Simulated assay, not measured.
Amino acid sequence: MTEESDFELVGELVRPYVMTSGRELPPDREFSVTTLVTAVEGALESRILEPESRRILELCSGGFLSVVEIAGHTGLPLGVVRVLLADLAEGGLVHTRAPVPIAERADRKLLEDVLNGLRTRFA
């Protein structure tokens, strides 16, 4: 390897560490890739933020985005996004919620009873 490529490799490894100040995700905060995030109104004006955190708030100010979408739009590693989101959530700058669950299949017997009831009512 050349010195230049060594420097690029170190830059790729160090930058995420620097963005999170070496912190890991707190144990009480768990963000799955499908956790939905939105910025609190006025969050961008509330304080001085690191550029990465500001970008996340800008992305989330228009509505809910999933954690994986935020990582994709920012180009940041998923682990870094999770740590930054934990900081933003702790500061009250974002709201998070679990994604809307996929609808479960309705019980066939229940559907048949409803259909039969409608048939007798409107027949």
Rank of each mutant, 00 (worst) to 15 (best):
T74V: 07
V18S: 09
M19D: 11
P16Y: 09
T2Q: 05
R97H: 04
A43W: 02
S66Q: 10
F31I: 04
G92M: 01
I56Q: 06
R108K: 15
P16E: 08
L85E: 01
S46R: 15
V18L: 15
L13Q: 11
S61P: 00
G22P: 04
A43S: 11
E90M: 09
H95W: 11
C60D: 04
A86Q: 02
T35N: 03
R23N: 10
A123H: 13
L65T: 05
E112T: 13
E50I: 13
S46A: 15
D28Q: 08
E4L: 15
C60W: 01
G117L: 12
T34F: 08
S46C: 08
L59F: 03
V37W: 09
G72K: 02
P99K: 09
E112N: 10
P99S: 10
T74M: 01
A86M: 05
H95Y: 07
S46T: 14
R47S: 12
T35R: 06
A43E: 05
E69L: 02
G11I: 04
E69S: 09
E30Q: 04
T120L: 11
L9V: 13
R54S: 06
V81D: 00
E104I: 07
D107L: 02
G62Y: 07
I56D: 08
V37L: 02
P101G: 02
S5H: 10
